[in-house]
């Protein structure tokens, strides 16, 4: 059986590429500077403002285009942070073993039983919810999930014949880790990055929605917050071009990441999926 790319993976990658391209080309694509007051407040969609303007007269389409940058930066940053921390700690614990491994895994258990979203809100309320803070807090709260998976994998790899052989022939720890263990971990780490990115996007949007967003970097979540702050928004049809587009964008991005995650899993471990049938 050839390794064909599944429909879910294709859909996910396409949406990600589109959003990525939008973020990169934002200055070219956006008709206005998203911060400039380019029209009257609360204009309806017109040729000049395809999605109308917000309550202070900024072009909504431009905000939407630039919002892609915020969401993607948070997603990339938090996903990298989570996976790097998780891989380092989990890999170290699994490779070293012994009491240090036991201690680190107790820490992982403890952190995983903490209610993470309430904790996240509390921390964000204290240190503010700028983009760097959001990335740091997500990484610090979510590394244990990756650590646990990585540790299990490293532990099983360490017992394999060829790895023990490499050690017997005098291969150093660093050599074995980079040469034999890391390449085996790649699929796992890639899925980890994708999953963490999905959480990060949803978290950032959720925090912004609760009023804990970074006011200097207007994300899609924050756009929704501002739209909902307008009294009676839902009673007119204004939500159609102000609330719906950012909501759809967040949904699409999270969905694309989920599909890529599922698709990759299927791509890397076809047997795992077939067993479930």
């Amino acid at each position: 059986m050839g390794r064909r790319i599944g429909a879910d993976l294709l859909f996910g990658l396409t949406v990600l590429t589109l959003i990525g391209a939008t973020a990169l080309l934002a200055p070219v694509l956006a008709p206005y500077d998203p911060r400039a007051f380019s029209g009257q407040p609360l204009e309806r969609p017109s040729r000049a403002h395809l999605l109308g303007t917000n309550d202070v007269g900024q072009d909504i389409l431009s905000e939407l285009v630039y919002g892609a940058r915020v969401s993607l930066i948070v997603a990339l940053g938090a996903a990298t942070g989570t996976v790097v921390l998780g891989a380092l700690i989990g890999g170290f614990a699994g490779y070293i073993g012994g009491w240090l491994d036991g201690l680190l895994m107790r820490l992982v258990d403890g952190m995983m039983s903490l209610p993470r979203l309430p904790l996240f809100i509390l921390i964000a309320a204290f240190i503010g919810a700028g983009v760097p803070q959001t990335v740091a807090v997500i990484s610090l709260l979510f590394w244990p999930t990756t650590a646990r998976i990585v540790r299990a994998q490293v532990q099983s790899l360490r017992q394999r014949g060829y790895i023990r052989m490499a050690r017997q022939f005098g291969g150093g720890h660093l050599y074995v880790l980079t040469r034999h263990i890391l390449p085996q971990m790649a699929p796992l780490l890639i899925s980890g990055v994708v999953n963490a990115a999905g959480w990060a996007v949803a978290m950032e949007a959720g925090l912004a929605f609760l009023g804990l967003g970074d006011p200097t970097a207007k994300s899609w979540g924050l756009m929704m917050r501002f739209a909902l702050n307008l009294p009676g928004l839902l009673l007119t049809d204004r939500w159609l071009w102000w609330l719906l587009p950012p909501g759809l964008c967040v949904t699409l991005l999270v969905l694309a990441l989920t599909f890529v995650g599922i698709g990759l899993e299927r791509h890397f471990h076809p047997r795992l999926v077939r067993r479930g049938r």
Partner: peptide
């Protein structure tokens, strides 16, 4: 169910408010 559970809760909620409420 994959789509609905991936949409942010507040987005699903808004859709319901608009439909049944407004």
């Amino acid at each position: 169910s994959l789509i609905v559970s991936n949409a942010p809760v507040y987005f699903v909620g808004t859709a319901l408010i608009i439909l049944f409420g407004a």
